[in-house]
């Protein structure tokens, strides 16, 4: 018990939690934006892979780190556009289309990687984002190391929480996006385009998801590896439900998740001899299922989620 307390009090633990949470923050926000407009986006897992691969590849080709971030976002937006076209104007199954986009984005990324680098055993490394060492603030006790030594992408994720919250809660656009996911007829009655709003939300949400992937190859690590996304996208889909589709709660959920993950890594080094390491590796996925089971009862899904809408048909 004392050891756990010691872990929890260390600033390095909270710094790690925020770092682990960062890709999830992007992913949960992206999934939330899609679902708020009424579209489930199971393309998320593949869009993470595409963002990770495209961002890193662009940086490696000399476009710079921010160029890579931009390329990742555009790649995510394009795969999101495929999902949006299939599910919004064509009204096809959101489940199957999303899985199709995941398979397509993943295999396209792997194929592009292997085609660009046919024979390498380990991928070339890039110079990743460095922690933003902010003078004075970084020297603050506790808060300094936790907050002010994260990379720019973590700050971007936190800014996105505020931005998505602001847009959804404080702007007419946000009101329209939420309405289109709850009651599209009312939006249509106001003369707004239901399909346009949904496509826009899915494309923007997918760009956010891809940034989560880009964080993995350009900040957490410095190269692209097969299987590195490892279910993070699916975890985000569970976290959205846990967060009741609210940006603030999404941040809390991602941070809690990051904290548990950071804790299991530290416990693994402490108790590694007693329990097989795999028990700890399973923990994040088990935790996500538990979170889902707990949250499912009171979950208030956007009312038009999964329901395609066509003009002139009630």
């Amino acid at each position: 018990m004392g050891e756990i307390l010691q872990i929890l009090l260390a600033d390095s633990f909270w710094a790690a939690s925020l770092r682990i949470a960062t890709p999830l923050i992007f992913g949960v926000l992206g999934a939330l934006l899609c679902e708020k407009s009424g579209v489930l986006n199971l393309g998320i897992e593949g869009i993470f892979v595409a963002g990770a691969m495209a961002g890193w590849m662009a940086a490696w080709l000399g476009l710079g780190l921010w160029g890579g971030v931009l390329v990742a976002a555009v790649a995510g937006a394009l795969f999101g556009l495929i999902h949006a076209i299939l599910t919004v104007p064509l009204g096809l199954s959101q489940h199957v289309s999303g899985l199709g986009v995941t398979l397509f984005a993943t295999s396209a990324s792997y194929f592009a990687y292997r085609t660009a680098l046919p024979d390498v055993a380990s991928p070339p490394r890039i110079e990743p984002f460095r922690p933003l060492d902010i003078p004075l603030l970084s020297d603050l006790p506790f808060l300094g190391p936790v907050l002010f030594q994260q990379t720019a992408l973590t700050w971007l994720a936190l800014a996105m929480v505020a931005l998505v919250w602001y847009v959804l809660e404080r702007t007419p656009l946000g009101v329209a996006i939420k309405a289109v996911g709850d009651n599209p007829d009312s939006v249509d009655a106001q003369g707004l385009s239901v399909h346009g709003l949904r496509i826009g939300a899915v494309v923007a949400g997918s760009a956010l998801m891809a940034l989560g992937g880009a964080f993995l190859t350009m900040s957490a690590f410095d190269a692209f590896f097969f299987g590195m996304v490892n279910g993070r996208g699916w975890i985000c889909i569970a976290l959205v439900i846990f967060a009741s589709w609210r940006p603030g709660k999404a941040l809390v959920g991602a941070l809690l998740f990051g904290a548990f993950d950071a804790l299991q890594v530290r416990l693994q080094t402490e108790a590694g001899a007693l329990v097989p390491g795999q028990v700890f590796l399973m923990a994040p996925y088990v935790l996500s299922i538990l979170a889902l089971v707990i949250a499912a009862r009171r979950a208030e899904y956007p009312r038009a989620l999964l329901k395609p809408w066509f003009k002139g048909q009630r």
Binding site: L42, H95, G231, W234, I235, I237, A238, I241, Y285, S288, I289, L292, V293, A296, R297, A299
Partner: peptide, 11 residues
């Protein structure tokens, strides 16, 4: 519990 089987089976 109403836990979405898409997510649970994937995980």
């Amino acid at each position: 519990f109403g836990a979405d089987e898409v997510v649970t089976t994937l995980l």
